[in-house]
Write a protein that binds this DNA or RNA. Sequence first.
DNA 1: TTGTAAGCGTTATCAG
DNA 2: CTGATAACGCTTACAA
Lengths: 346, 346
Amino acid sequence: MSKALPSPPPPGRRVTATDVAARAGVSQPTVSLVLGGNPTARVASHTRERVLAAARELGYQPNLMARALAKNRSYTFGVVIPDLDNPFFMEVVSGAERVAAEGGYGVLLCDARAASAVQHVEALVSRMVDGIVLDAASAAEIPPDVLAGVNVVVIDEPDGVHPGIASDARDAGRLAAQHLIELGHRCIAFLGPATETHTFRLRERGFYSGLREAGLNLASEHLLRVEASVGGGRRGMRQLLALHERPTACFCANDLLALGALKACLTAGVAVPAEMSLVGCDDIEMARIVTPELTTVRIPAREIGARAARELLRRIDEPAAGRKSTRLLPASLIVRGTTAAAPPRP
Amino acid sequence: MSKALPSPPPPGRRVTATDVAARAGVSQPTVSLVLGGNPTARVASHTRERVLAAARELGYQPNLMARALAKNRSYTFGVVIPDLDNPFFMEVVSGAERVAAEGGYGVLLCDARAASAVQHVEALVSRMVDGIVLDAASAAEIPPDVLAGVNVVVIDEPDGVHPGIASDARDAGRLAAQHLIELGHRCIAFLGPATETHTFRLRERGFYSGLREAGLNLASEHLLRVEASVGGGRRGMRQLLALHERPTACFCANDLLALGALKACLTAGVAVPAEMSLVGCDDIEMARIVTPELTTVRIPAREIGARAARELLRRIDEPAAGRKSTRLLPASLIVRGTTAAAPPRP
DNA sequence: TTGTAAGCGTTATCAG
DNA sequence: CTGATAACGCTTACAA
């Protein structure tokens, strides 16, 4: 009789802390004290063990929604991404998801194509997320007041108001320019996305300044803005190939564009890299799969996602954290098969 | 004095239904009635408007956590995926996210590489998700009892206990076999992933039966199981190329493998499709980017994800829904550049 | 050390 | 039609 088990194994409902309490013969808050992981709360090891045993036997799992409501903390992040079909962003998501999961956080994924970024962010706030990873393009669409008081990290856009994790986009552009110039190219084109995000502007500027340092200029007809996708790259390159003064090299502001451009060249019978050198940016996995393999500037996508999540975690613990001086992640040139010395002038 | 506004604009906290009630001069539950979207509850249009006005002025957004707790419904789905780096799964996620978002549902993304599928599912249940989309490989790892009472849809594995959305994997394999046979190939290899999931087994079997129908057989040395990635495909094809009796064609159980195989051929100087025909499976975007473009069997990934989410939505509304007789989504052969007539026998 | 009581922001069940 | 009142499952003072 010393071991009466007052409560029967639970009915259909999920096991609650109250069930555990009943079984352990303690009050419900005591269960919360034991299992809540609150380090300041000391409880007799005697009862602690009883509670733990009861919890184990019943297979208790705390209800995170209830906890969220009580603690005003959902242990969830939101991640808003402009285009899930771009492998670059998937890597960012993947990196963020990993560190979030390790920290016990869930990740709510939002594709900004399906609904507007504003709607997504509002929904996330309604869900009491503890932080949001936002890409630059989406961030730009959001009126400042809806982001007020939200823990936000912006990817690739130091907007001055939110902390951000960014790659050294300027250097990325410059690296591409320098590489092509060293190979002897003098007539170089630029293919960029039509979106006006900071990163792409910087890649472009870095590229220009790289050209300028070598005394080169970009003919306006050699600057093309297209949709940021494989299709866009294809169309853009077709246009460049049709030009009277055809460039001998092209820097594409991201790898999808570059892959499209490569495809357009091969389809048109233009030899890469013999007649056209191509440099991409991002270094997505695909870059190593095409033939010839794509020369590109590597941006550490996974690392960006991981850092963004870590930054959110940090700011949850110490909300006082001043806007950390956005350290830039380095970009690095990866020379593969789509670049070669410029053909001799005709 | 007829328009006294009792409550000042809200302090730092988020606006709650109580704030709205105070402002509208009604009780808090009334606010809930008006904004809760409950169609059966009728409220005087007079007060309804006052409430709506107050809500608008205050910028009220209901707290979904609180709602979740009260309604025992979180308006959130979980999606567990074995490998976020496989574009096929990203498409599945993308499709699921879209219909979830349209239905007002959030999506918690879980990468089964970061943590075990069991941990992910337990975490999801703790978060009171209203449904889980689970890939076959992850589903296999999960003890049945942790899935008890959970609204689950399994991707590509009719396991008999949970509803599933699946492609016609058997037919996919058969289509590949028939295509290669029609091209005159007689010595055909198979490259599959080492994982033992239903879909891949079926693709394999369908492939065999396609061969058998033509009186062909698969030499055991022509059956290779490798890691389900580009690298795996590369290594597998290298092995095949080194064989004394080298096959003239190969069916790869997914596109990543096929792309790796293609890469291995091109690297080794083996002409595709002249000396080696390749058929992939999935039809990821990359398939159209490589040169030559990959012949493959199309599996409608996005549609699978979308249907999985729709099925969850359906089963939330009518939990009685019997295990819908998993209708198979058709696979279709997409002939592109990596297949050609078999070379004449030496 | 532990139990009691209050509260998180909703929704649901009833009286009035 | 509307307003109390009681959940939902948890955390956090505060008392005992």
